[in-house]
Computed example of a mutant assay.
Amino acid sequence: MKAIRDLVDSHSSTTTETRPHPFWVMVRKEIAGHIRSWRFLVLLLLILLTFWGSISVAMSTIREVVNNAKDPDRLFLYLKLLTTTEGTLPPFHVFLNFLGPIVGISLGFDAINSEQQNGTLTRIMAQPVYRDNLLLSKFVSALALVGSLLLTLSLLMVGGGILITGVLIEAEEVFRIVGFTILCTVYVGFWLGLSILLSILFKQASTSALTAIGIWLFFTVFYQIIIDLIVPAANEFSETDVIRYNRQVLNLLRLSPSQLFTDATTTLLMPSVRSLGPITMEQMAGAIPSPLPLRDSLMIVWPQLSGLIAATTMCFAASYYLFMRREIRG
């Protein structure tokens, strides 16, 4: 009897040790739910079509771009695949500036209110599950799915480029493409965190979706118009006044996540970019157009990346605060 009892105790302790954490169980459940939903399949098809279109256009003109002796970035073949266009379609990073908010909003606008409307939120909270684990699983699962998708597309681009051109990718290009993937994931994460916050604030999923789309349209369409109206133009056309005016406008534009994303992607994918703001003729004197090292590009792009991370953290912190204080019974 003692041997049987010891065997049962050892089996129960082994089962307890190998039992997965509830957080990772919820993450796997959320990922499976996203993959099986028609919403994600439509978004996936849209991203694949835009990726294929922009890369096809870049491939058709890559020979002329590489042979252009005036382009300091002509040797970065795989970065050119993400930035080259002939005018019919924008490059892929411009597409992501438009599609990233749509993906983030679509994956998070009904994260909490749909659970409460369907009555499943009360059932989940009846289990030994913490509220913060539930909220974090919603965010982590969607972000992991987006990051995996973007990394897969980057690997497909590199593999296709090697098969078509026969040119091996350089190590610096690999690091820049990985940094671009991380930056895109953070950018989508901001809109995901904002949409989850709105799904906690509003009871109806349609209200949270419309509010998130309205915020996106405001920053995309109307924000620059408002800045042009409120910032007084320079009375004198001297170089100092023009530079001061452009810096004021640019600093206000950088309150928009899309402007931060544009600045950061431009610096990472175009190594010859040396400054993201207006510069004087004295600063340009003697400058030779040449690519910057990766470290210098990261130093330029770090404020934009920090701003996106800070904005995403603020949205998630506000979601955490509101969700922890929310009444979910009934």
Score class of each variant (00 low, 15 high):
260 L>S: 14
161 G>Q: 03
203 K>W: 13
246 N>A: 08
166 G>W: 00
252 L>C: 02
217 L>D: 05
238 S>C: 04
185 T>S: 15
224 Q>S: 14
275 S>D: 11
210 L>W: 13
190 F>M: 09
268 L>N: 06
197 L>P: 06
164 I>L: 07
265 T>M: 14
176 R>S: 03
162 I>P: 00
247 R>V: 00
268 L>W: 09
217 L>W: 05
172 E>D: 13
271 P>V: 07
259 Q>E: 15
262 T>H: 04
204 Q>L: 14
180 F>W: 15
190 F>V: 12
211 T>M: 14
255 L>P: 05
260 L>T: 03
223 Y>I: 01
188 V>L: 08
218 F>E: 13
251 N>Y: 12
224 Q>I: 12
187 Y>K: 13
180 F>M: 14
214 G>L: 15
188 V>R: 11
157 M>A: 02
198 L>P: 05
181 T>W: 10
264 A>F: 12
191 W>E: 05
239 E>S: 04
205 A>N: 03
264 A>N: 09
273 V>Q: 05
205 A>G: 02
275 S>Q: 06
259 Q>Y: 10
196 I>K: 03
228 D>S: 09
267 T>N: 07
252 L>D: 01
275 S>K: 11
259 Q>W: 13
160 G>K: 05
218 F>W: 14
283 Q>R: 08
194 L>P: 07
235 N>A: 03
255 L>H: 05
223 Y>V: 01
229 L>C: 09
267 T>V: 15
178 V>T: 07
185 T>Q: 11
220 T>H: 13
187 Y>G: 03
199 S>Q: 11
259 Q>G: 00
249 V>I: 10
182 I>G: 01
207 T>E: 11
154 S>N: 06
239 E>N: 01
231 V>R: 09
269 L>A: 02
262 T>D: 02
168 L>D: 09
221 V>H: 02
230 I>N: 04
260 L>E: 13
254 R>N: 15
263 D>E: 14
178 V>W: 10
